[in-house]
Each structure stands twice: as C-alpha cells, then as structure tokens.
Design a protein around this nucleic acid. Structure first.
Lengths: 211, 211
DNA sequence: GAGAAATTTGCACCTGGTATAGTTATCTAC
DNA sequence: GTAGATAACTATACCAGGTGCAAATTTCTC
C-alpha cells in the first residue's frame, strides 16, 4: 500500500499541489477571470512555464480533479449486485450520495464546496469545459451499459440521458445551496427530485407529457 | 415584405457576409486552428477591430448562425396540433426533417454541409461552444413544455433529455456522412435510430436496460 | 562523485481579444 | 447640395493565455 516514491516524484506532487492550492485560493477570492496565470505562478513560486507543464490550460487548474470522477457512473453499473438493473443501481447510488452529502450531488453545505460550485457556475469558460468531462463520463457509461447487454445505440442514448439528468439534479441542488439554504433542509426535495428523475428515465416521458 | 434598408445598413450586412464567407472558406480549406483572425480580416478587407465588432469571438464566426435554430424544438412543441403530445410532435418533426435531408439532422450528402459538420466535430473549441447553444435550446424547450402543462422539474428533465438525444442522433448521422456513405443509403437506419430514440424517451429505459 | 536523465527556467514569440483615440463614411435637416 | 451629427471603421498599442527552445538546475544511477 505504501507507495515508495523517489524524491523527484514527491517534489512533483508537492509542486502540483502548491500550484493548485494557490490557484484555487486566488480564484475563490477574486474570480477566475480576474486572476492571471503569472500571478498564480508567482504565488506558487514557480515559473509560468512550469505551471503549464502541470496544468495545460488555466481551466485545468480548476477542473483536472474531475477526471477522477469521470467514470463513476460506469463503475456503479459494473459493480451492481446481480439481478439489479443498471438504472436501479444508479438510482440507489444517487440516493446514497445525497444521504452522504457527497459534493458531486451538489447537496452539501460545506462552505468550500459551495464556493467552488459557485466558481464553476459563474464562470462561462469553466462550465463549458466541464462538459468535456461529461462527454467522457458518457462514453464510459455507454461502455458499461453495452457490457450489461444493451446494443450500441441504446447504450449511448441511455448513457447520455442518465449523465445529463444527473447533472441537472446536481445543478439544482447546488443552486439551492448557493442561495443559502442548508443541505439538511433541501435534502427531502433533493431526494424527491432524484426519485422523479429516475422514474422518468425508467418509465419514460409519455405519461409525464401527455397530449 | 421588402425591407427598406438604408445604405449604411446594407453595407453592414454585406460586410458581415463578406467576413463570414472569407472565414468559412479559410477554415474549411485549412482548419479552424490554423487560420488566424488577422488572416481572415485581411481576406475580408476589414481591420481586425471591425471583425470583432461583427463577431465577438473566433468561434462565433462559425457558430453564430446556430442562434437561429436554438428555439426550433420549442416552436415545434408550441405549434403542435391539438391532441398531439409534445414528444409525438417532436418525433414527427424529426422524421420529417430526415426525409427532407435537413442539415440539422446530420443526414445530408451536400458536400458543403458535410465539410462544415466535419469542421465542427474535429475542432474541440467549436464542439464545446456549440453546447452553449444547446443550453439555450434546452431552456426554450423547457419553457414550452411548462406551457404544455408539465411542472418545472419535469419540463427541465424532459427538455434536457430530448435535446441531448437529438444531438446524439445528429452526431451519428453526421459521422456516417463523413465516412462517405450517401444520405439515401443511411436514411433507413437514421429513421430506425430516431424511432428507437423516441421510443426510449417515451417508454423509458427500464425495459431496454433490464437487470 | 560523474554523467545521464528529468525538471525548471527565462526569453522570445504567437494568437485572440480589448482600449483608445482619431478618421472616414452615411444620415438628417435645411 | 451642404453642415453638422452620428455611426462605422481603422491604426496602434496593449494584455493574457499558451508554446518553442536552449540553457541551467536538480535528481537519479552507478
């Protein structure tokens, strides 16, 4: 378990962490667009050139951590208990995440997480770039659904629906948090919304949008 | 019907068109990233500053025309015949668009349209920015669905699902076109995929993704 | 400790985009 | 048609994100 890393590797990790923390601190206090790359580099005591070897774009300073979560839905589907449908597994996982106040649900009163979410939603270039990660998340989920027996078209359509619906739920929760409502207060609505969303995903829109 | 425009206004329209055509021609022949703004400005015989008064960003040189289509789904829902469900109206509209080889479906063999689609799908910054227009399309459709009687959450969830599914269909058709298949050959599959997609939207994923 | 390999740096450079201030063209009213 | 008024355009200088390159520094290996 204990990774034996050389000094070189440890220094790299420390440098990356230092840059990231400096960037986040500056972004949160003054906004993404009002902080320049050189400023971050100075705060982290590295050269501009070095900063860019760790983070290829300014947006990645904020978003690269999302790469860790990009296959979460796919993993949930793959790890589901026998006899459970992919949708049921994802539904259960979302309810569990809400109960845990997992930041990915948007439902958390943790000030840092709320501030971070605000940074994302108020910065156009960040919310746009975030969609790139959503795309990879869709690809991963589609792959898992194919493994579960769906044909390619169905898997892709289902994956894109599921991922975008989860995003809508998270956005709504996050908006409530940013409006100052405590997570515990919003929790029941968040659960109801998730239930509604998975009902629509599973049973379709026909009944919900009658003629 | 005949708009009486002054010389000033006519010149502006001509200038905008000239810039747009120069940009598109250069982009198509050499790729979005390998053509600079100054090059386009020179080709259109305007100053760089003037170019930016017409198109606020380089991406808008390609994408601004999508603004016209951003409320298409919403209009279809609002204009649906009495007794028709929103989903049925959108389904019928998509089938009609496929039959007409409307470029928005991705199903067209028109070389210019195919080249344009390739430009979009091969340029990261363009496909990302395109999602901004998708966002507005979702907002518009959600509004129309609320008018049709859906509650706010349902309308939003349905809208996001519908718009993203239509995008998936268009992307797939466009990919087939770029691979060189003629539209008439792909048409039956495209119809089948659209039918499948609207079936899933209407009846849900439960049956399609069993445990 | 020497040399190889990786990391960091400084510097020059490119591109997209903006600010400003001045020039040119069109419009309106007489 | 001419005189402003007004809108559009241009040149220039500038900023920020990002890259290429060669030199300098640091870590690794033996």
């Amino acid at each position: 378990m204990t990774e034996q890393l050389g000094l070189r590797e440890r220094k790299k990790q420390r440098t990356r962490q230092t840059i990231f923390e400096a960037a986040l601190r500056l972004f949160l206090s003054r906004g993404f667009d009002d902080v320049s790359i050189v400023e971050i580099a100075e705060a982290a005591e590295v050269s501009k050139r070095t900063l860019f070897t760790y983070f290829p774009t300014k947006e990645d300073l904020v978003l690269q951590q999302f790469a860790d979560h990009e296959d979460e839905s796919a993993r949930v589907v793959r790890a589901r208990p026998a006899g459970t449908s992919p949708l049921a597994a994802l539904h259960a996982h979302e309810l569990d995440a809400l109960a845990r106040r997992d930041p990915v649900t948007g439902l958390t009163s943790d000030p840092d997480a709320v501030a971070f979410a605000r940074l994302l939603s108020t910065t156009a270039s960040l919310s746009e770039r975030l969609l790139r990660y959503a795309g990879r998340s869709i690809d991963a989920l589609a792959g898992a659904l194919e493994e579960a027996g769906a044909d390619e078209l169905t898997a892709r359509l289902a994956a894109v629906q599921i991922v975008t619906v989860l995003r809508v739920l998270a956005d709504r929760n996050s908006a409530r948090m940013q409006a100052g409502h405590p997570a515990d207060e919003v929790y029941p609505e968040a659960v109801a919304a998730a239930d509604r969303a998975f009902l629509l995903l599973g049973a379709g829109l026909a009944d919900a949008l009658p003629g």
